[in-house]
C-alpha cells in the first residue's frame, strides 16, 4: 500500500549513495576505539583559564563588529539590487537577467576565497574579512529579497500605479512594508551565519575571537580554548535571541 515498485528503486539508490559516501569519507565507527584520546584531550580544557578574559572579550567584540558590518552592508547593498533582480520590478528583461546572474555569481564564491584573495592586497586583519562577508551577503540577501519581492501581493502595487506615483516609488512603497518582517528575519539569520564565517576567516588571519581560538589551539593553550568556545556559544545564543526579539517587535 505504502511502497510502490518505483519508490523501492529509489530507496535502493539511496542506500547505494549512503554506502558510496561512507567509503569516500572513510566513515568507520570502529575508529572510536581510541575514544579515550578525546576524553584525555577534553579534560585538558578544564579548568578554564580566565586570566586573558579581557582580551578575549575585546576580540569577541571585533568578531561581532565584523559579522554585523559584513551582513548589514550586504543588506544595504543587496536590497536595492534585489529590486533590479526581481522579475516584477526590474525595468526590463535584460536588466533582470543581468542582476540575477551577477548575484548568483557573487553568491557562488565562498567567503574564504574572497578572504584569501583580499589578503594579498589588504594584508591580515578584520577589514578583508568584513569585505569578504559583505560580498557574499550581497549575493545571498539580493537573491532572498528578490524572491520575496516576486511573491509580494500585487494589489498595493496596482494602487500605487493608479495614484500616479513614479514606477520605482510605487514599487518601493507597495512592496517594502509587506516584505519587511521577512527581510529582517533573513538579515538576522545571515548575521548569525556571518559570526560563524568570521570565525573561519579568523583562522586565515582575519582577526577576532576566531583567530584567537586558532592561535590558542595551535599553542596547546587548551584552558583558553575552552573559554573561547564558551564565549562563542554565548555570543551566538545572544544574537539569536536578539533576532527573535526584534522580529517579534516588528511583526
Amino acid at each position: 500500500m505504502w511502497f510502490k515498485k518505483r519508490s523501492l528503486i529509489i530507496y535502493a539508490l539511496l542506500v547505494v549513495a549512503i554506502f558510496i559516501s561512507m567509503r569516500l569519507t572513510e566513515f568507520d565507527l570502529t575508529k572510536f576505539r581510541d575514544f579515550r584520546n578525546m576524553i584525555d584531550f577534553l579534560s585538558q580544557w578544564f579548568p578554564m583559564d580566565f586570566t586573558r578574559l579581557p582580551g578575549m572579550l575585546e576580540d569577541t567584540l571585533a568578531t561581532l563588529a565584523m559579522a554585523f558590518l559584513g551582513s548589514f552592508l550586504g543588506l544595504i547593498i543587496g536590497l536595492p539590487l534585489s529590486f533590479l533582480a526581481a522579475r516584477n520590478t526590474a525595468h526590463s528583461k535584460p536588466v533582470f537577467h543581468f542582476f540575477r546572474v551577477a548575484l548568483s555569481f557573487v553568491r557562488s564564491v565562498p567567503e574564504i576565497v574572497f578572504g584569501l584573495i583580499l589578503l594579498t592586497t589588504l594584508g591580515l586583519g578584520p577589514f578583508p574579512a568584513v569585505l569578504a562577508i559583505t560580498f557574499h551577503n550581497i549575493g545571498v540577501m539580493g537573491k532572498l529579497i528578490s524572491e520575496l519581492i516576486e511573491a509580494a501581493d500585487t494589489g498595493p502595487q496596482e494602487a500605487m500605479k493608479a495614484v500616479g506615483a513614479k514606477r520605482w516609488v510605487a514599487s518601493l512603497f507597495s512592496i517594502l512594508p509587506q516584505i519587511w518582517p521577512n527581510v529582517l528575519s533573513n538579515f538576522f539569520y545571515r548575521f548569525e551565519v556571518a559570526i560563524r564565517t568570521s570565525l573561519i576567516l579568523g583562522f586565515i588571519g582575519g582577526g577576532g575571537i576566531g583567530q584567537r581560538l586558532f592561535n590558542d589551539f595551535n599553542t596547546f593553550n587548551y584552558s583558553s580554548v575552552s573559554l573561547d568556545v564558551l564565549i562563542i556559544m554565548v555570543m551566538v545564543i545572544l544574537v539569536d535571541s536578539l533576532g527573535s526579539f526584534v522580529r517579534n517587535r516588528v511583526i
Binding site: G155, P156, E158, A159, M160, K161, A162, V163, G164, A165, K166, F173, S174, P177, Q178, W180
Partner: peptide, 21 residues
C-alpha cells in the same frame, strides 16, 4: 500617463492598502 492617473482616483475590491502603515 502618470499625470492622467493622478486625476483619477480608484478604489479596489481588495482595498489594496499598504499593510503595516
Amino acid at each position: 500617463l502618470r499625470q492622467i492617473r493622478r486625476e483619477m482616483g480608484m478604489v479596489f475590491q481588495h482595498f489594496n492598502l499598504i499593510p503595516r502603515m
